[in-house]
Amino acid sequence: MAAATDDAGDSNEMIRVVSSDGEHFEMPEAAANLSLVLRHMIEDDCADAAGIPLAVVAAKPLAKIVDYCTKHAAKSSGLTIEEAEELKRFDAEFIEVDTDMLYDLLVAADFMGVEGLSKLAVQRTADLIKGKTPEQNRETFGIVNDFTPEEEEEICKENEWAFQITKPPSRLC
């Protein structure tokens, strides 16, 4: 536990980042290091007072990402089981966002190379798709149905098994 605090405490340096819409954010160096892109920039001495510009990440998702990284960096190594559970709870609450935000987070985490967040967002999206009808999924994620009616019928028939509710056994015999 002590080690974890020390690790985070060591890097007092704050890293400044700038969102695509010009907002400035600050986070500890340990937090920035969770992003592959930022880490490389820091290693190459590109982190200066002006801040690292992130051309494709808007302020809203960036604020969330800074939150995420700061929280995770503070508890990086030597977690007790309680701390690990607390972090898990944090993740679960953190990712309870609407689909627009989820979408932004996915793209931003992918761009910035924040592996933990990428996984979290990808899993959340997969969970959202699960158990929904194709029509509901198209609505949720704004996907256009580009099948012809014939194609759609065919593909639905092929994957009928996945939609089936277990039938009474008598009908199967």
């Binding site: 929904k132 999924n137 198209r138 996907i143 256009v144 099948f147 759609e152 593909i155 939609f163």
Partner: peptide
């Protein structure tokens, strides 16, 4: 498999 019916 269900998601396969969403789009191409």
């Amino acid at each position: 498999a269900r998601a396969a019916c969403v789009s191409r």
